[in-house]
Design a protein around this nucleic acid. Sequence first.
DNA 1: CAGTATCCTGCTAGATACTG
DNA 2: CAGTATCTAGCAGGATACTG
Lengths: 82, 82
Amino acid sequence: MLILRDLREGPRKFHELQESLVGISPNTLSSRLKTLEQHGIVERRFYEQHPPRAEYLLTQKGNELRAVIGALRDWGEKHTRG
Amino acid sequence: MLILRDLREGPRKFHELQESLVGISPNTLSSRLKTLEQHGIVERRFYEQHPPRAEYLLTQKGNELRAVIGALRDWGEKHTRG
DNA sequence: CAGTATCCTGCTAGATACTG
DNA sequence: CAGTATCTAGCAGGATACTG
């Protein structure tokens, strides 16, 4: 969910996601991204350069999750304090 | 999520939830319900009778999750086949 | 009926180190 | 930079049996 929340705002690089998802280890992040990719929710674009660059972005199917994430965010903002 | 999906349609008893959530063990169901109760999402109504009766229902806070569950259900129906 | 108690296993995911 | 490899601990949760 937190990955998707980030990707709602545009493509993100691996290290950007890792910085945003405080505490996540690279293997966990990698694993999550692969699962999301397998499910057709996230697309990975890899550029073989030096340094290498990778971007993750929502697919159409992923974009259609915006309604879910948005509803959840609204609920969270309403009911969370602190 | 599946508990909440059920409770959207009205109060449910412990055994009704257990039948609906195929494969869930009673301790797991009990644990989930307690967590939801602690978070103020579900309310438990217990009637000391013979046989005893318990009902679980959404609180106001829980009701406000309908938008989330609904959005997720719509997405699931659109993207799931089989 | 509505749970609790106990036991046990598998998976999630962090820590750490390493590679193209 | 963008990961993979390896190890390990903790915990979620199923199986089963039992209680008021």
